[in-house]
Amino acid sequence: MVVLEFKVKGNKTQYAAIDDAIRTGQFVRNKCLRYWMDNKGVGQKDLYRHNTWLRSEFAFVKDLNSHACQASVERAYNSISRFYNNCKKQIPGKKGYPKFKKFSRSVEYKTSGWKLSPDTKSISFIDKKGIGKLKLKGTWELWRYDQKLIKRVRLVRRADGYYVQFCVKVDIKESLDPSHTNVGLDVGLKEFYTDSKGNTESNPRFYRKGEKRLKFYQRRVSRKKKGSANRKKAINRLGRTHLKISRQREEHAKRLARCVIRSNDLVAYEDLRVKNLVKNHCLAKSINDAGWYQFREWLEYFGQKFGRVTVAVNPAYTSQNCSNCGEVVNKSLSTRTHVCKCGCRLDRDHNAAKNILTRALSTVGHTGTLLNARGDLSSTLFGSDLKGQDESLNRESPSF
Rank of each mutant, 00 (worst) to 15 (best):
E5Q: 15
A16Y: 04
A16E: 14
D19M: 08
D20S: 14
I22K: 07
R23V: 10
R23I: 07
N39A: 00
K40L: 11
V42A: 13
D46T: 01
T52N: 11
L54K: 01
F60N: 13
D63R: 09
S66P: 02
H67Q: 15
H67T: 12
A68Q: 02
A68L: 03
V73G: 14
F83T: 06
Y84K: 12
C87E: 12
K89I: 04
I91M: 04
K94I: 03
K95D: 05
P98T: 11
F100R: 13
K101C: 11
K101R: 13
F103W: 05
F103Q: 12
F103S: 07
R105Q: 13
V107I: 13
S112M: 05
W114R: 04
P118N: 03
I123C: 06
S124M: 04
F125T: 06
F125P: 07
D127Q: 01
K129W: 06
L136S: 04
K137D: 06
K137L: 15
W140T: 02
E141D: 15
E141C: 08
Y145N: 09
D146S: 13
Q147T: 15
R158H: 12
Y162I: 13
K173M: 07
S179F: 02
T181P: 01
G188A: 02
G188E: 00
L189W: 01
K190D: 06
Y193A: 01
Y193G: 00
G198M: 09
F206H: 14
Y207D: 04
G210R: 04
E211C: 08
E211G: 02
R213I: 05
R213T: 02
Y217E: 11
Y217T: 09
Q218M: 10
R220F: 09
V221C: 13
G227N: 09
K232R: 14
K232W: 01
K232G: 12
A234K: 11
N236T: 13
N236D: 10
T241N: 07
K244M: 10
R247N: 15
E250M: 13
H252W: 12
L256H: 04
R262K: 15
S263Y: 00
L266V: 15
V267M: 08
D271Y: 03
V274L: 10
L283G: 09
L283M: 12
A284L: 08
K285I: 07
Q294K: 09
F295S: 01
W298F: 15
E300L: 03
F302N: 07
Q304I: 01
K305H: 06
S319N: 03
S323H: 08
N324A: 14
C325I: 03
C325R: 02
E327K: 15
K331T: 11
L333Q: 10
R336Q: 08
D347H: 11
T363R: 08
L370K: 08
A373F: 02
G375T: 03
S378I: 13
K387A: 15
K387N: 12
Q389L: 02
S392A: 14
S397I: 00
P398I: 03
S399P: 03
